[in-house]
């Protein structure tokens, strides 16, 4: 895929900041607007921008299709697993009070894990959706 020089230089400059912003939104979501959903979407958008400018083949080398599928499953499992941990510690499912010695710390830990699960899950799924469409196009164009 050939794209404009300006586009390539600007996006090369921007993409690290987009990814960094995604992590900021993820881990600062307790104190400011943001959280797992937004961070996941921004992370996916950064990689999609890379794919659009440098070609899908280049982005497949960095984040393969397989990784997005595994990531989507891991995200859901982190979320569900947090609930199972609180079950094992004798509380109800997804009751974070039992995760640490002190309920407020338990809540902090629980929210952190859950938001992490949501972030990984959403980022991977959004990228997976984009990859599904683009790889379908690649396969179809390759056949005709």
């Amino acid at each position: 895929m050939q794209s404009d020089v300006v586009l390539r230089v600007v996006s090369k400059f921007l993409i690290p900041f987009i990814l960094l912003f995604a992590f900021y939104v993820q881990f600062h979501g307790d104190f400011s607007p943001g959280g797992g959903f937004q961070a996941g979407v921004i992370l996916a958008a950064g990689i999609i921008l890379y794919a659009l400018v440098f070609g899908v083949a280049a982005s497949f080398r960095i984040v393969p299709m397989r990784a997005t599928q595994i990531g989507a499953a891991i995200g859901v499992m982190i979320y569900g697993g947090t609930g199972v941990v609180s079950l094992l510690r004798g509380a109800r499912y997804l009751d974070y009070n039992a995760l640490a010695h002190d309920p407020v710390h338990g809540q902090h830990l629980g929210i952190f894990m859950v938001e992490l699960g949501v972030g990984i899950g959403v980022a991977s799924t959004m990228l997976w959706l984009f990859y599904s469409f683009t790889s379908h196009k690649l396969r179809r164009d390759g056949q005709s």
């Binding site: 307790d30 104190f31 400011s32 959280g35 629980g110 929210i111 859950v114």
Partner: peptide, 13 residues
């Protein structure tokens, strides 16, 4: 919950 962003605490907890 002890988290300033109410939306986060409602969403996750």
């Amino acid at each position: 919950i002890g988290v300033p962003n109410i939306v986060t605490s409602v969403l996750a907890s």
